[in-house]
Design a binder for these strands. Sequence first.
DNA 1: GTTTGTCTGTGACTTAGTCACAGAGGAAAT
DNA 2: ATTTCCTCTGTGACTAAGTCACAGACAAAC
Lengths: 231, 231
Amino acid sequence: MKEGASAPSFFVRIMIEFTAMLTSKEFTRAFPAFQKIPVPLMQEMLSSSRTQAIPSGARIYAEGDGCTAIAFVLSGEIRVYKVGETGREITLYEIGPGETCILNASCILAHTTYPAHAVAASNVDVLLVPSTVFRRLVTENEVLRDFVFALLSQRLSLVMELVEEVAFGRVDERLMGYLIEKSENNSLDTTHQKIANDLGTSREVVSRLLKDFERKGQVRLSRNSITLLKR
Amino acid sequence: MKEGASAPSFFVRIMIEFTAMLTSKEFTRAFPAFQKIPVPLMQEMLSSSRTQAIPSGARIYAEGDGCTAIAFVLSGEIRVYKVGETGREITLYEIGPGETCILNASCILAHTTYPAHAVAASNVDVLLVPSTVFRRLVTENEVLRDFVFALLSQRLSLVMELVEEVAFGRVDERLMGYLIEKSENNSLDTTHQKIANDLGTSREVVSRLLKDFERKGQVRLSRNSITLLKR
DNA sequence: GTTTGTCTGTGACTTAGTCACAGAGGAAAT
DNA sequence: ATTTCCTCTGTGACTAAGTCACAGACAAAC
């Protein structure tokens, strides 16, 4: 999944490795489209792969890293983001169960390096397929090719939408949309800094806008928590 | 290339259609990687395709359009861009000779609609390959698959870079970089509005920044023309 | 209970974008 | 050649967004 001459970072070192092979049934529960893959190919893929548990916060990729495997997410979320020169961040998209880290596929098939940063947004379980196996399976199997194409296309469209949002969108509208999307039971536990990192803006702007929302009666604020009020 | 229930736009109607079949040699001059494609497949592709000349300024795609063909650019430039609610534009990337309109490939292979706008930035010559033929050739031929994958990956990386530029970059630095990149013999003929459309900013901001550059002795301005001075 | 680090809010500033408007330049019409 | 009209450019006045510095509240760690 990640190669480099440097010693593994602290986070990489604490990854827990499962040695038991994932069953076809367990895998296709998260990836239903793979039911169409011939059993011998599925068996080969699973027997040459390994599962990995990644704790929340663990850095998975840095920009410029090479790829030796592609990760299929079984559970949890991986956040893919860019970092600017001033240290500000913006989330490009998140990878959930049933998706792959499609930039892995780009790296493997187009022989490039990882063009963003990736971090575990929660505890994550992945199936790691070695790049040589993956490359050959993509060549041989149309279902897998279609899956990868579809995900790459979807990501391209999504990132193009993000360009439009960032270039033309008002931050207050993006923020409200974010709160609505990310909340569960009209509430979310997060920090202003994390919201700013997702939206690609500055922490002070998020604090100011949230304060405005509170004054307007749209939200209730407390430390590490935001509650959406009925409107 | 473009389908829709509405009558063809003015620009589409004036497209000139070439009926002579493109030779393999002519095609591989623009697309060298295709020399590896077996001759029967190349012949089939060329015999079922047609070339098209598109005049500068012609609208090629609007967001939401379906695709019936994929365009391979033989000469000229196609500009792919997004438009915000307020009418402002931002160029995502440009497609030159030796490239395809890769969003066509996304549409064809992943059964989606065109996720941006495309316009001829100059007089353009394209080879139009019908989507059914393209889909089958991608399935059968690894060279074509690799080509499409590589271009899709490249575009994804490029658009992710653009997110970073737009989110974190200073407009004056992006503008100077743009002028340097787009000028020939330290000069470019364009308008402030066109620059603003490429960079996703407003015309007044470009005018103000160019005036600042002029005051600093970095450029010389005249109507429809900007000259870079030595620094 | 105290200390320290994280989180939040705000002031003062600059940069970027909007809206309105005016003037210059040049293409088109006469 | 002159006039008209359209495009292009520049600027003022405003708001929104981002930066930098700083202070205070909260809560985790000791």
